Amino acid sequence: EETVVIALYDYQTNDPQELALRRNEEYCLLDSSEIHWWRVQDRNGHEGYVPSSYLVEKS
């Protein structure tokens, strides 16, 4: 079962390993094994790492 997370803030990045976030957008959580950086996928299928503190699990 996939976990959906919501971005609390915008996040901009130039790092190809990371993914930009848009506030209030939903993302699919792929990997939360790292404490500070979670791997997520956006609705267009793009994947990357984002700061975990910018996300909240959708209830």
Score class of each variant (00 low, 15 high):
10 D>G: 03
19 L>V: 11
1 E>T: 06
29 L>A: 03
6 I>V: 12
1 E>I: 14
37 W>L: 13
37 W>S: 15
17 Q>C: 06
33 S>N: 08
1 E>F: 06
30 L>K: 14
4 V>A: 09
14 N>I: 08
52 S>C: 07
50 V>Y: 00
36 H>L: 08
14 N>H: 15
3 T>F: 10
27 Y>Q: 00
10 D>S: 06
23 R>L: 06
44 N>Q: 14
8 L>N: 08
39 R>I: 12
38 W>H: 08
21 L>C: 04
23 R>G: 05
13 T>R: 08
50 V>E: 00
47 E>M: 06
26 E>V: 06
47 E>K: 09
55 L>V: 14
25 E>S: 08
28 C>V: 13
57 E>S: 12
45 G>R: 06
42 D>N: 07
58 K>C: 04
37 W>M: 13
35 I>D: 14
5 V>P: 01
45 G>W: 02
38 W>N: 03
22 R>W: 10
50 V>M: 01
1 E>D: 08
35 I>V: 13
36 H>R: 11
37 W>G: 08
57 E>W: 05
3 T>W: 03
25 E>Q: 09
5 V>T: 04
29 L>Q: 00
10 D>F: 01
24 N>M: 10
39 R>L: 14
41 Q>Y: 06
19 L>E: 00
10 D>T: 04
37 W>C: 10
12 Q>Y: 12
22 R>V: 15
33 S>H: 12
44 N>F: 08
40 V>Y: 00
22 R>Q: 09
43 R>T: 11
7 A>Y: 01
49 Y>M: 13
17 Q>F: 08
29 L>C: 08
39 R>W: 08
26 E>M: 05
40 V>T: 01
20 A>G: 15
53 S>Y: 05
46 H>K: 12
3 T>H: 07
58 K>M: 07
58 K>Y: 05
31 D>F: 01
57 E>P: 06
30 L>Q: 09
7 A>E: 01
12 Q>C: 06
24 N>D: 13
29 L>P: 00
45 G>P: 00
46 H>P: 03
14 N>F: 05
34 E>T: 15
14 N>Q: 15
25 E>V: 06
54 Y>V: 09
46 H>Y: 09
20 A>F: 14
35 I>L: 11
13 T>E: 10
55 L>P: 00
23 R>W: 05
54 Y>I: 09
14 N>K: 12
4 V>H: 08
12 Q>D: 07
32 S>E: 07
35 I>S: 13
4 V>Q: 06
14 N>D: 15
41 Q>I: 09
57 E>V: 09
47 E>N: 09
15 D>C: 09
9 Y>Q: 15
12 Q>R: 11
11 Y>R: 12
4 V>D: 07
39 R>S: 05
22 R>C: 10
35 I>E: 14
37 W>E: 06
25 E>G: 07
39 R>H: 06
41 Q>L: 08
48 G>R: 02
7 A>W: 00
37 W>D: 03
31 D>Q: 05
51 P>H: 04
48 G>I: 02
7 A>Q: 02
26 E>D: 05
54 Y>G: 04
9 Y>R: 15
34 E>K: 15
49 Y>V: 15
32 S>M: 08
55 L>C: 08
18 E>G: 12
24 N>W: 05
20 A>Y: 05
39 R>Q: 11
51 P>E: 02
45 G>A: 05
21 L>G: 00
53 S>C: 06
30 L>A: 05
49 Y>Q: 14
49 Y>L: 15
34 E>M: 11
34 E>N: 09
53 S>M: 07
43 R>S: 13
21 L>P: 02
11 Y>W: 14
1 E>Y: 12
51 P>W: 02
36 H>S: 08
16 P>Y: 04
15 D>T: 14
10 D>H: 04
15 D>A: 15
46 H>M: 10
32 S>C: 10
45 G>T: 04
26 E>N: 04
39 R>A: 04
15 D>F: 11
56 V>Y: 09
47 E>R: 08
50 V>Q: 00
55 L>Q: 02
26 E>T: 10
58 K>E: 05
31 D>G: 04
9 Y>I: 08
9 Y>K: 15
13 T>K: 11
25 E>A: 10
28 C>S: 13
45 G>V: 01
35 I>C: 14
4 V>W: 10
44 N>I: 08
41 Q>T: 11
32 S>L: 04
46 H>R: 12
19 L>K: 02
2 E>M: 09
59 S>Y: 04
57 E>G: 06
46 H>W: 05
19 L>Q: 04
9 Y>H: 08
14 N>R: 11
43 R>Y: 10
42 D>A: 10
18 E>I: 04
58 K>H: 08
38 W>V: 05
28 C>L: 13
17 Q>Y: 15
7 A>V: 00
36 H>I: 15
44 N>G: 14
32 S>G: 10
50 V>G: 04
10 D>P: 03
50 V>N: 00
23 R>E: 10
56 V>Q: 12
28 C>R: 12
28 C>G: 11
42 D>W: 01
10 D>Y: 03
32 S>Y: 10
51 P>G: 01
12 Q>K: 08
18 E>V: 06
33 S>G: 10
32 S>Q: 12
1 E>R: 03
